[in-house]
Design a protein around this nucleic acid. Sequence first.
DNA 1: GGCGCGAATGAAAGCGCTGTCAAATTGTCT
DNA 2: AGACAATTTGACAGCGCTTTCATTCGCGCC
Lengths: 344, 344
Amino acid sequence: MAVKHRATLSDVAQKAGVSPVTVSRAIRHPEMVSETLRARIDAAVAKLNYIPNTLASALASTRSSIVGVIVPSLTNGVFDDYLKTIQDVFVAAGIQVLVSNVRYSEVEEEQAIQTLLGYHPEAMILAGTDQTERSRQMLKNSGVPVVQTMSVTDAPIDLNIGLDHEAAGYAAVRYLNSLGHRKIAHLTARQDPRSRRRHAGYQRAMDELGLSTKGLVALSPRPSDVEMGGTLFSEVLANAGSVDAVFCCNDDLALGTLFECQRRGIDVPRDMAIVGFNDLDFCIASVPPLTSISTERQRMGTWAAEAILEIIRGSGKRPKKTQVDVGWIINERGSSAAKKSRRA
Amino acid sequence: MAVKHRATLSDVAQKAGVSPVTVSRAIRHPEMVSETLRARIDAAVAKLNYIPNTLASALASTRSSIVGVIVPSLTNGVFDDYLKTIQDVFVAAGIQVLVSNVRYSEVEEEQAIQTLLGYHPEAMILAGTDQTERSRQMLKNSGVPVVQTMSVTDAPIDLNIGLDHEAAGYAAVRYLNSLGHRKIAHLTARQDPRSRRRHAGYQRAMDELGLSTKGLVALSPRPSDVEMGGTLFSEVLANAGSVDAVFCCNDDLALGTLFECQRRGIDVPRDMAIVGFNDLDFCIASVPPLTSISTERQRMGTWAAEAILEIIRGSGKRPKKTQVDVGWIINERGSSAAKKSRRA
DNA sequence: GGCGCGAATGAAAGCGCTGTCAAATTGTCT
DNA sequence: AGACAATTTGACAGCGCTTTCATTCGCGCC
């Protein structure tokens, strides 16, 4: 065989001595084909190593069995969990997931949406609710079901599941204040829309409590990592003199802060309370374990995927619930405690 | 508009008053079309919100511009970095990446390979070198370029970049022994082929050194996380009585071990040396920072992607190098030190 | 002024598959 | 035994695009 010619439906048909349509049916709808033929066809498929051309199938049937998923990051533990959940649901349903990583950029997101729409997906799942106007237009225009996740919004494109990050940030501060803390710092990196909202919640709470935030906020435009937690925390320490507590916009920064405290001999939680965000797996393991606000990202992924499955299977019928607020939980652990007396 | 009919090439052509071919060319090869027409067509495209059907384009041109990538995990920091690198290279080149997560299962991998091949990808990138015979057959049969990454092997399917995990495990032990340690433990979770090789290297080194490994190895079949590091370490401590050093098959376990030491008041590195694997970002930040064997996973991803690009662009010509051993580096940090006297 | 040439456009065919409908085959009932 | 229904198979057209190949047009040239 000089030229690599991948076996096609017709090749199989010829080998099995039937028409191409019959082969197609034997593969897609086996129950429509008599047993004898099915066996003959299966044998031919096996012999020729035939793998159906998904592209051609999608084109002919106008059902791509593709769902486009856009994530802002591939290296952030939050989106890993989320993406994995989505993939698991769809793979089990025979749907291929096309992932695009847009690196927290609205412009890249716009391009990714266009690219993915080119595949005529059955649906699109987006992280966040802050798409550009053009993105929104393309999506609406496509007529494809869209799920926006991670945040809740007043003006969803279509379906929406998420939480109120501003409120969560607000709650973190109220929680720390309830423990007696007043000089509450905030560390935040790569100001994506959601961290920005948490930050806003922090600020609102501090304002309401009549507490100044001067020198208490450290922020970096770069993507966050554990090391940066230490850096930002040190910055706050230098600017603010003393600090009671730190609310970090994610767990990486919280862990980095904890390490920096260890390095400086600052006792956590006696001399410093730390609260993280997302409740990644290491929070439970550190010494002391980290208090963190957990968001149900797996549930968001599952819900999004299953809502779409329902629409696809129900041939277009919308689910009764089109918006869900999953809320959040403050998982209180050893890294935070009352200023004077530790909690039980 | 009652029925949502997505604009097609012909719709655009009609609107612009030209033939469909011309529209196709205006989009794919703008230089072949006169400026006047190009402007008219661009306007029509914009007005109709036309997005070309990638599926149809791929079918007609027999170039899918898709590359299939298989990863064993989506929630392991190692594959995140790797995958991100691959995506970055391909997206910049206008190639869509189809990712499949096979959850460390050879069976799922086999299915994923079949599914991805259905999309007639331009190439396939696999993590690891331990595919089933059927997987290998399908891949070879497809005639598509294949890159196996992460490990080097004597019998690559096609291209191969990776490292010798057995040798790396061996080196970790020799390194710890060179610091004076003799009771060297090994923690390992979810025995995928690569951790198994590191384990084998550990065992070989211990054997060569005439050191018993009785009670010094703890292993879990479950996916590893930070917490498990503490659990496995505790297990070893209970079984072996005393331990000098721990070689962990990944950094999560190493961090968990460090936390467990903190919890038990074991001084690292004075009373316990810890070595991890992969050199994730937190290694540099912990207290003390973790010694870890760094593998160039980003380089592996980039090389794989670029080698494929070269083949695609060079219309099938093979690169001169078809196999690369990227080796590894022991990044020595505070978590390991000489038994008697600390290193400078 | 007719010729050849390159550039720009179009017509036709087909990528590999599936949906629809018609044809052929079988079985069933009176 | 004949007629009808149910079942199984096949012919045909077409999904939306690209790839030849042919055609048209404008131009410089002897």
